[in-house]
Design a protein around this nucleic acid. Structure first.
Lengths: 203, 203
DNA sequence: GGGAGTTAATTGAATATTCAGTCAGTAGAT
DNA sequence: ATCTACTGACTGAATATTCAATTAACTCCC
């Protein structure tokens, strides 16, 4: 089968095991066909045990969302030194690689499924709004550094980070919901050119 | 309540009424909680009638997807004359306005919900892959015109259209799944600048 | 150390509800 | 009389949730 994301490998505690089971079931069946039964099937212990740890299916899924977002935020690189343009290049790399690398591509899929629930679920929306803001702040900060370092032109860091965000969720949605994998390659090529034209300071 | 998209206003035929009912139920409950019962509730006639017109829930939903994609493609402007840069400006306008205008913003929401199903459903994925390709071809063609007209720099039309596609699905996903409506405004500002820097021919 | 008492983990079976899909039959048009 | 649109009642399967009962672990007193 596919390689599991490391954060779900060999969970020792019960919560970890439940998260892994939920993850597996979600990847296999999708959110709309996700049942307690199916989570239970991926779970070494019994299905009833899930109710010992969570009040309801909803409760469990909300905890799972928190778990996934924490993981996503944890994946963010901490740049301590080096030039900002390399950091941005790295961010672009990660953006377009997201979901296509050695790690289980199902992670992206699961994340999009959860995200789409935000359309109808207040709680989900709040989670994602918060998480997005966190990521954007990080990107904006990197851009700000680049401007101060003199490698970037004087763009608005907030606005630039916002575009990064849009492109990020765009690639994520596109990758998961389309067979046409050339779109990402081509889109990235143009995005790179755009950034070079507007963001990078010509030397 | 919210304004209905015109294409669903006062359907006279049965199919139209079923599409509207499905649309309403989808918007209200989301794909994962979409049941035949709930479609039936939004439907003036009885729930059993749905089975008179469709073999199964799946069958109905697939027809609904076709219906929505036809509507989406139908919304695309046909540019007969005028300069390509105005057309592109219009496309950008529509991209970022998508889901925020007088028409029911739920249209976007419904579309994203359907789109997300493509993660697990082959048939859905094929539909969207085809629809995306259709839209991209249109955008690429407009860009090609612009290059020939001499208003655009010599970019690769395919790649540029691909970036448009990513930004389009990105705004769509972002709008529906986040409370932070400033992201779209800010992202657009930067996207405009990028296009000006890379696409538009300086005069 | 060892039993008595308390709590947490765990299970399989049961319950109540929801869901997709069926069917026998009505009403109206041709 | 036949066909088509249409209906309400019905069903079996699936689903979330509960529960009574069992086991494992931990604690407090002797």
């Amino acid at each position: 089968m596919t390689q599991l994301p490391s954060f779900l490998d060999e969970p020792d505690d019960t919560r970890g095991a439940i998260m892994k089971a939920t993850y597996d079931a979600l990847c296999e069946h999708g959110y709309s066909d996700l049942t307690i039964q199916r989570i239970g099937n991926e779970f070494p212990k019994s299905k009833s045990l899930l109710y010992h740890h969570y009040d309801s299916k909803d409760d469990l899924l909300l905890d799972f969302l928190e778990f996934m977002l924490a993981e996503l935020e944890g994946q963010m690189p901490a740049y301590r030194d080096g030039s900002a343009d390399e950091h941005i290049a790295d961010i672009v790399d990660r953006t377009f690689a997201f979901g296509s690398t050695e790690k289980n591509p199902h992670f992206t899929q699961a994340l999009l499924e959860l995200r789409t629930q935000a359309a109808h679920d207040e709680a989900y929306r709040e989670y994602f709004t918060r998480s997005d803001r966190f990521v954007r702040k990080h990107v904006a900060h990197t851009i700000q550094s680049g401007i101060e370092q003199g490698v970037f032109q004087e763009v608005d860091p907030q606005e630039t980070a916002a575009l990064f965000q849009i492109v990020f969720v765009g690639t994520m949605t596109q990758r998961v919901t389309s067979d046409d994998d050339d779109v990402l390659r081509a889109g990235r090529a143009m995005f790179d050119q755009c950034l070079r034209a507007r963001l990078l300071r010509p030397e």
